[in-house]
């Protein structure tokens, strides 16, 4: 099992600040401290384009730019296209998950999730290589 860099820059995207905090807290518990937040896809994309992020965790439903559009934009960007992308969905709606999978999502996670589930998803993403 590959060792995951705990210092990697992670971008957490959600319009609901409570949710960002929940994710951030979860990440902190897992030892990831380098977390940046963005309130929607549009801001997130700017941050990604101007920064060096190693991992994106994004909500699906957001104003301005939805998570799925952010994912598509990231995958279409030459520099960003290989960033691991974890999509947060409110329910495991199959068509959403499949749409995200087709758009190149690395994995998805369904709200509500436990820190354990988050860890599992992160491990699943980063151990696939």
């Amino acid at each position: 099992m590959a060792v995951i860099d705990k210092n990697m820059a992670i971008l957490v995207v959600d319009d609901f600040s409570t949710m960002r905090k929940v994710v951030k807290n979860g990440l902190k518990q897992l030892g990831f401290n380098n977390v940046t937040e963005a309130p929607d896809g549009k801001v997130a994309l700017e941050k990604l384009q101007n920064g060096e992020f190693a991992f994106v965790i994004s909500d699906w439903n957001m104003p301005n730019m939805m998570g799925i559009d952010l994912l598509k934009a990231v995958r279409a960007d030459e520099r960003l296209k290989n960033i691991p992308f974890l999509m947060v969905t409110a329910e495991g709606k199959k068509e959403n998950v499949i749409a995200a999978a087709k758009a190149g999502v690395s994995n998805y996670i369904v709200k509500p999730f436990t820190v354990n589930a988050l860890e599992e998803k992160i491990n699943a993403i980063f151990n696939r290589g």
Binding site: D15, F16, T18, M19, V22, D59, N61, M62, P63, A90, K111, P112
Partner: peptide
């Protein structure tokens, strides 16, 4: 959309707790 999102966010958050 704004109403939907608010409800959606509340749902998401509440499920956590």
């Amino acid at each position: 959309d704004a109403m939907f999102r608010a409800v959606h966010s509340i749902k998401g958050g509440s499920s956590y707790f």
